[in-house]
Nucleic acid binder design. Structure first.
Length: 332
RNA sequence: UGGGGCGUCGUCAAGCGGUAAGACACAGGAUUUUGAUUCCUGCAUUCGGAGGUUCGAAUCCUCCCGCCCCAG
């Protein structure tokens, strides 16, 4: 429980359904100030345990985050946090407290399949749907998961809170990277890199120098802002060349990709073996693109029906069939 | 120190006597459980400088300064 409306309403709904609840609020060590959850405890009349998961968070999420940037890729901390922290360490601790299920305020839904498997499906609220961030969960994790908000919209959630006089302690939506403030970002990553990043040239594909970068860890594929490189058209980051310490940029048309390799596959449905037509989300807030997943012994490739903008290594590609999440992989 | 060309926002660039377009960059905001994208807003009382002509100049004239090219 973060203290926000979502987890608050989720708990309330479970309570109404007759569940016996134990609240858990975990901290990462990066909170700017402690959240006082006593009013939530009073409102729901439950006990909320505070769990300090900073050591685990540091190791599983922050290290991963920094190492990914060190390799010139763009991490997906929320996906990793869900798999390793919320439905990993946190779930284990919850079990120790006697919990048989773990519920969160995610806008996603699960359904029991005929074969005993759990299907992960998009939340009803098309805009808030967070199934993307849960696509790296395993069947084991999904079996314990409850998503009370899966079939409601954000507006309905707010309405429930209002009608039941539930007052969240945290007004703000959780968004952005939860453990770093924007301006501190470059320094945060740089301070944790074994080899300090050095500035270098920003170049076009033909080698023309158009500006200077502040260290390659500051950029991600598809990024436009912050390049400080005026030109005849907006430039976007096309390639992060770690080997030559170059940031290759180009016009928007240079960012489209039709085929990409994916690795570290996680299947929520039974693993597929040949090729399959799927709708793939390249990043959160991506509408999803018609594509074909080709699974072969030497690797898996994803081919889009239409070229996609800024396919970014390190990001999670989530495969959908209609509303169901089939699985996910990491863009290489 | 002969000849020619040019100097307008951080960058590129309109304007050619009637009171400073636009693009890129940048800043702020909206959106977003990924520093992305996208969207909105802002951004030269001033045109290398100093004089002059004119009701009125970035636009015409003079001088100066600074670049560039060709001849040295």
């Amino acid at each position: 429980m973060s203290g926000g409306v979502d987890s608050l309403v989720a708990a309330h709904l479970l309570q109404r359904q007759g569940h016996d609840l134990v609240g858990i609020h975990f901290t990462t060590g990066f909170e700017s100030q402690a959240v006082d959850l006593s009013s939530i405890e009073d409102q729901l009349d439950i006990k909320i345990h505070q769990l300090d998961l900073s050591a685990e968070f540091e190791q599983r999420v922050v290290d991963y985050f920094v190492e990914t940037y060190a390799r010139g890729r763009t991490p997906n901390p929320c996906v990793v946090c869900n798999r390793t922290i919320k439905f990993g360490v946190l779930a284990q601790r919850a079990k120790a407290l006697g919990a048989v299920k773990i519920a969160t305020g995610h806008y996603a839904d699960t359904r029991a399949g005929s074969d005993g498997r759990i299907a992960l499906v998009k939340g009803t609220d098309g805009v808030k749907d967070q199934s993307y961030f849960l696509a790296m969960l395993t069947q084991e994790q999904l079996k314990q998961a409850l998503f009370p908000l899966g079939r409601m919209t954000k507006d309905q959630v707010r309405e429930i809170a209002r009608k039941n006089r539930l007052l969240p302690v945290e007004a703000k939506e959780s968004q952005d990277i939860c453990f770093i403030k924007g301006p501190e970002f470059p320094g945060f990553v740089a301070s944790r890199l074994s080899k300090p990043p050095s500035p270098g040239n920003i170049v076009l594909a033909d080698g023309t120098v158009v500006g200077r970068h502040r260290g390659l860890h500051c950029y991600t594929i598809g990024q436009r802002r912050g390049l400080n490189s005026p030109g005849p058209e907006p430039y976007y980051v096309k390639t992060i060349d770690m080997e030559n310490n170059l940031l290759v940029v180009g016009g928007k048309q240079a960012l489209y990709t039709t085929e990409v390799a994916v690795g570290d596959l996680n299947w929520i449905t039974p693993p597929l073996t040949s090729s399959l037509k799927v709708t793939t989300k390249i990043r959160y807030s991506h509408k999803g693109a018609a594509s074909t997943l080709n699974i072969e012994n030497d690797g898996t490739t994803l081919v889009f029906d239409a070229p996609q903008l800024a396919v970014t290594p390190g990001q999670t590609a989530v495969f959908y069939r209609d509303r169901e999440v089939l699985g996910a992989g990491i863009i290489q």
